[in-house]
């Protein structure tokens, strides 16, 4: 099995098991997960993302056969070009992680009223993909053939800290990226069922669009329905560890009423193809 969406590191609001590499490897072994695509969890909140990326690089160098790094860049923060350059040149970056909702920069940039109104969160703005800097970053991703992981949401909003009410990235925003860069391979992470179906139906180009199932936790028959909608080639097993129980994504595929070959594709085949793992 290949876990297409996971994090290493601590979450500020709750002590989570399997946050550190050695614990994670034990959990992966117990579940039969050979490799995991990982980002630094602290980079959801850090401003200087290079710190988290350096830590991630050090971990991955210790376990190159188990962890596939996805380095995090915030195009809304000054100096992102430098971070990207370091990640590409020094760390051999192949995969790029984006958190458009957590990496809002309303204090740094002008308002985008459409975004504010759409969500009903008066003080909230995320960067959106039509922004110059986001466009430039996606252009770089295309130039370097990076797989782009867009994190739609990281945790169940019911559990959010009262000072951290961060809405999910909207599917309009995600579609702006997907539709604007048909040459880029996108893995949409942390989307719930309705978000997956919504983005799939609004994407102009679906060949390079992939989803993982960590937060697809219903309705009944969810994996079956997504395979029927998108075909089996566009859905990947993802745990969202350490935030979620990995068993949710695993059992969801195991219980699905699809062929063994389809399950194999979801558990590993699609990820092998996407990440060259």
């Amino acid at each position: 099995m290949i876990d297409a969406n996971a994090f290493l590191g601590e979450w500020p609001f709750r002590r989570l098991p399997y946050a550190q590499p050695e614990d994670r490897l034990r959990k992966m072994d117990a579940l039969g997960i050979e490799k995991a695509v990982v980002s630094r969890l602290e980079n959801v909140f850090y401003k200087d993302l290079l710190v988290g990326n350096e830590e991630l690089h050090a971990i991955v160098r210790r376990y190159p056969d188990r962890f596939i790094p996805a380095y995090t860049i915030n195009p809304g923060f000054p100096g992102w070009e430098h971070d990207l350059e370091v990640c590409i040149n020094d760390f051999g970056m192949r995969n790029l992680r984006l958190h458009p909702n957590y990496h809002q920069y309303s204090r740094l940039k002008g308002n985008v009223p459409r975004m504010v109104e759409a969500r009903g969160y008066p003080n909230y703005q995320q960067y959106h993909f039509l922004d110059d800097q986001a466009q430039a970053l996606l252009g770089k991703a295309e130039e370097h053939d990076l797989v782009v992981l867009i994190s739609i949401g990281v945790e169940d909003p019911r559990f959010a800290h009262w000072l951290m009410k961060v809405p999910s990235v909207t599917m309009i925003d995600a579609a702006e990226a997907v539709n604007g860069f048909p040459g880029v391979r996108f893995l949409v992470c942390g989307a719930v069922f309705s978000e997956v179906t919504s983005l799939w139906s609004t994407a102009y180009h679906q060949d390079n669009l992939y989803f993982e199932n960590s937060r697809v936790q219903g309705p009944i028959g969810d994996v079956d329905d997504l395979c029927a909608l998108m075909g089996a080639d566009h859905l990947l097993f993802g745990s969202n560890l350490p935030i979620n129980y990995a068993e949710s994504a695993k059992l969801s595929i195991e219980y699905a009423e699809v062929d063994a070959a389809v399950k194999q594709a979801l558990f590993s085949g699609n990820a092998e193809r996407l990440f060259g793992a």
Binding site: Q217, G218, P219, G221, Y245, A246, S248
Partner: peptide
Amino acid sequence: SDTTGRSFASQLAKVYGPD
């Protein structure tokens, strides 16, 4: 589980996943 809005699998993970 709160199915059918949720899947059985995701909610059983809260039983089979914990330590």
